[in-house]
């Protein structure tokens, strides 16, 4: 009897030891880096254990989509044989410009989000954003003048943008105004690329478009991706980790792109009401499936107080949010209770 019991314990034990000894087979991660899109580095990674040929094919799908959208939304260059956002901006105050229907789709998506965020995510702020962009790119960096900002601030708002869906044309009515898709374009394009992979049945992939994460499925073992969110005041260290799968995760933080002047860091996220960088939070992280929505909401919620942000986030289905304060305190929506580990 005892012999039989011990055998019942022994056999599984031996199995465990054998398993521990040969350590579980590890699925190799494959990654491919793309440099040319949205002024950032994009990394496509496969955790699916698929072969190199199918991985390369999937990377080409992603790259083709990102290239198309990058060109359509580029505000600094025009390209042969197409009208893009740069063309639209150059023709401000003139005739309507015929554009790719996919660009119309992005503009309509942005308009809807502008309405839903009470104008906090506004793509018509080009005139103001370009002043901040110039100030950031200058050597040494400086602050734009209040006078210039106020003047530029008069040339924005969705009334300056006429979108004709039927004829696929766009017109900016105010010659001083311009469109800047910086807050939503990268996320939107990433979502289109991810959807294209999903339609092919791809799973176990992550597209990381310059910190704009879009996870497709889960890792091969069914687990999620552990994502660290930095401490805004000490970006070398992490404030928390959050485990994500089948979703997007986008962080807007004052520490990503900033200009430094007089010992103060000014983030690239500009509050439409003040025309100055938003100082409400250290960082805001949005977790929701649609990468375009995540991108836009991360910008909008960064530019408003916690109560307003919470109300906005809760007005959507399945959107989660993490706020890290300038003093390091952490707040998050209830849906993340089990997924967050504060460090």
């Amino acid at each position: 009897m005892a012999r039989r019991i011990s055998a019942a314990i022994l056999i599984p034990l031996i199995l465990i030891v054998l398993l521990a000894g040969c350590s579980k087979p590890k699925v190799e991660t494959q990654s491919r880096v793309l440099y040319s899109y949205f002024d950032t580095v994009t990394m496509v990674s496969s955790y699916a254990g698929d072969d190199v040929v199918s991985f390369e094919a999937n990377c080409i799908i992603v790259e083709d989509i990102l290239r198309d959208y990058h060109r359509m939304m580029d505000i600094y260059h025009e390209y042969d044989g197409m009208n893009n956002l740069c063309t639209v901006n150059l023709n401000a105050g003139k005739d309507p410009v015929k554009v790719d229907p996919r660009l119309i789709e992005v503009l309509l998506f942005s308009k809807r989000l502008c309405d839903l965020t009470g104008g906090k995510m506004d793509i018509t702020m080009g005139s103001v954003l370009s002043l901040w962009h110039e100030a950031r790119a200058a050597e040494p960096q400086h602050l734009p003048s209040e006078e210039a900002l106020k003047k530029a601030g008069k040339h924005m708002g969705f009334e300056i943008l006429e979108i004709d869906e039927k004829n696929s044309t766009v017109r900016i009515t105010d010659p001083e105004a311009s469109i800047d898709l910086g807050a939503v374009g990268k996320g939107f394009a990433t979502e289109v690329a991810a959807k294209a992979l999903e339609e092919k049945g791809v799973t176990g992939y992550v597209i990381n478009a310059g910190g704009n994460l879009r996870c497709i499925g889960t890792k091969a073992d069914g687990s999620g991706w552990v994502t660290g969110i930095r401490k805004p005041q000490d970006p070398d260290n992490l404030a928390l980790t959050v485990t994500i799968s089948n979703t997007s995760c986008v962080t807007s933080g004052g520490y990503e792109r900033f200009l430094e002047f007089g010992g103060v860091r000014y983030s690239h996220l500009i509050d439409k009401e003040t025309l100055w960088p938003a100082f409400y939070h250290g960082s805001v992280t949005i977790i929701t499936e649609d990468s375009g929505l995540a991108d836009a909401l991360a910008t909008a919620v960064f530019c408003m107080g916690y109560e307003d942000g919470l109300a906005l986030v809760e007005s959507f289905d399945n959107v989660q949010c993490i706020w890290i304060g300038n003093d390091g305190h952490i707040l998050h929506t209830k849906g993340l209770d089990k997924k967050i580990k504060e460090l």
């Binding site: 580095v41 992550v206 994502t227 969110i229 930095r230 070398d236 260290n237 992490l238 933080g253």
Partner: peptide, 28 residues
């Protein structure tokens, strides 16, 4: 920290810290 990187887009250069800390897949 493991996973942190510095990017120089014009030179297509990335410097990434790889570390023993495999517990984090991505850093934002």
């Amino acid at each position: 920290r493991g996973g942190q990187s510095i990017v120089c887009l014009p030179n297509k250069l990335i410097v990434t810290v790889t570390s023993s800390d495999r517990s984090v897949d991505y850093i934002l």
